[in-house]
Design a protein around this nucleic acid. Sequence first.
DNA 1: TCTGAAAGTGCCAGAAT
DNA 2: ATTCTGGCACTTTCAGA
Lengths: 153, 153
Amino acid sequence: MSDQPDIDRTDEEIITLLRQDARRTFADIAERVSISAPAVKRRVDRLQQEGLIVGYTAIVDHRRLGLPLQAFVELRFDGRTKVDDIASVAIGITEVETLYTTAGDPDAVALIRARDVDDLKRVIDLLRRSRHVTGTKTLMVLGTSEPPHGLRR
Amino acid sequence: MSDQPDIDRTDEEIITLLRQDARRTFADIAERVSISAPAVKRRVDRLQQEGLIVGYTAIVDHRRLGLPLQAFVELRFDGRTKVDDIASVAIGITEVETLYTTAGDPDAVALIRARDVDDLKRVIDLLRRSRHVTGTKTLMVLGTSEPPHGLRR
DNA sequence: TCTGAAAGTGCCAGAAT
DNA sequence: ATTCTGGCACTTTCAGA
């Protein structure tokens, strides 16, 4: 359970560049951070091994992939529910993009992607019928915006 | 504003593979989907051009990068607020990972990442003082879980 | 299929400890 | 002296036409 290993300015820059475009070449990164490509590769290998970089993913347009609807479903559980049981409500439901367990009024929040209203309804019903779930509240997402992604300190 | 272009099974597989690991080579993908590497490249180029693949990013461990706290901040706005004004509350606040505009009780939800409680407090205060914001409600995230990422239909 | 570019590896130099 | 990090040279693999 280590926490923050020694990350210098160059490591930060490399991470930022890879967050902006994960398919950048080492040579490209090397030029931007002013060290050689092999040196970049070694740093990236290290960052991965230390678990700072967990992986790389393609960002897709869900609308064009046939999942235009997005919603938060707040979940409330009965008092006996263990935290691990909470996480298990999402398993097998592919429409659940992320399940957040939370401290406070909703015990969890599921971020859903759905094809259409019927699909969304089906997913909500599935969640509502899950063991220990005592209630839900759904919040439709109209739009999202995020910063250019990478300048985060 | 086109929507769903012709995506065949191979395109879907390619997208899934790139979502699992965006740094996969065309040769690697080619082997897995049983076509040639140049054919994969052409498809990926097309998927990018059609806007199905928007970009590629590195997934980082925010805890180890010094941002261990995560929270939802529900935002309520006064009646005269335009939707575009809602999105603008997040600009300049690097701790806002995503701002969701929503239909219903909260008008928007900001997903926040913070260094520590003071940082979180600072961000919440910033949001509360934003123009048109009439109230907030904060929900701490205890944990997240997401499906292996890619099997989504 | 072919050419140039990038990835990946080994080796050595220099700096920091 | 040793450890860490970078550069260089080289081979293998990939990208792109």
